[in-house]
Simulated assay, not measured.
Amino acid sequence: MGDIFNQTNITLTCVFIFTLIAIELYRRHLRSKDQPPGPWGLPFVGYLPFLGKNPPRKCTCLAKTYGDIFRIQLGSWPTIVLNSSAAIREALVEQSETFSDRPDFFSCKVVNNMRSLGFGSYTPRWRLHSKIASTVLREFASPNKPTTEKIIMMEAEKLTEYFLENTHTHFDPHEEIFLAIGSVIYQICCGMDKDCRNDKGYINLIKNTKMMQEFAGAGNPIDVMPWLRYVIPSKATRFVEILQTLIVSTDTIMNEHLQTFDEKYLRDVADGLIFAEKKYCRSPKKNQGITKSDIFSTLQDFLGAGFDTSSSTLEWIILYLGHYQHIQELVQQEIDSVIGTRSVSLDDMGKLPFTEATILETQRVSPVVPICCKIFHATFWSKDLDPM
């Protein structure tokens, strides 16, 4: 009797699994009729197992078979890959609004319920949010602002001193580069300080940012396979916990600025956001539904967006200059001949063509977020593509 019962359970399980697979294959067949061509994937995980260790290179190979515009399934999400400058230009410029929305990934929904600047839905409210953020950045973080240049040059000098102190041995510059870049961003956003490395808020922000990067550096699998949060709930819980620590850090900064805010003397980006909140949130005709929480959350986007990308770019430049020392020598010769012994300033832009070309070539060869460049930034989300 027991054997018959076990055999029946196995049969029912197999039938259930086969039915799910058949339904998924049928749904994909229906969706693919009006979609670009692309490779088939596996049920539930899509083409993810076949992307390998270098997804951008794999996408380049797929383009040779399916063309510059093709479709792959990333877990539960159908994704269109754009693999040529012409296709990207058409999406970004000619049909920009169609491809400006965000997919409702788990991580996007967790971040301020898709009302943040970086992960928000493309709506009139978001467009106003973007306008406010751009205005504040131009006011306090513009490269031609004397304060901004002073902060950058000060951190550059500290980083140079650190390098010179360690010329006698091998060392990893990652930590100091990360602190220097973070210090620039933190001072622009939260106030200038001669040594913000002793600032408790800055130390906590660095710690929390690193935790987020280590956790989400390889991507959040729950985003493309949302059913995983029921299989490995600890993954989703941990993401929320780390995000909450970042929110607490930025909320603390904003609350401290509120206590000393003076609209006649705006000190930094945080003050600029407080001023914008008073201007827009209290005017129903202007605010497009934007709230105080929406505007204040912009600080999280500003602080989180620049740390890793800027520091990684600088690390790649140092790595390449160390490997191609003849290029390093040419860069040094140009700087010596044009600049001399003084410090380089923003006024020197355009006077150092070889140095600028070296920086740009490094960014071309080693983009710091290639998967985003090739799949998520060069692959655009359209509301016509619905997940299963």
Rank of each mutant, 00 (worst) to 15 (best):
N6F: 14
L20G: 00
L20N: 00
E24M: 09
Y26T: 10
R27G: 01
S32D: 10
P37Y: 01
G41H: 01
Y47R: 02
G52A: 02
G52R: 03
K53R: 15
R57N: 14
A63P: 03
T65Y: 03
Q73I: 02
L74V: 09
G75I: 01
P78A: 01
S84L: 07
R89F: 06
L92H: 08
D101Y: 03
N112V: 10
N113W: 04
N113Q: 10
L117H: 01
G120L: 07
Y122A: 03
T123C: 03
W126I: 02
L128W: 04
A133L: 05
V136C: 12
K150F: 11
L164A: 11
L179A: 12
G182L: 03
S183N: 10
S183K: 06
C190R: 04
M192N: 13
C196Q: 07
D199T: 12
Y202F: 15
K207E: 09
F215K: 13
G217W: 02
D223T: 07
Y230H: 08
K235Y: 09
E241D: 12
L243V: 04
I247K: 14
D251K: 13
T252C: 15
M254K: 04
M254N: 01
T260Q: 12
A270P: 09
Q288A: 15
S293A: 13
S297E: 06
T298G: 06
D301M: 06
F302W: 02
G306C: 03
G306F: 02
L314P: 12
G322R: 06
L330W: 01
V344F: 01
P353Q: 00
E356D: 08
T358F: 05
E361F: 05
P367A: 04
C372N: 15
A378Q: 12
S382Q: 02
L385Q: 02
D386H: 10
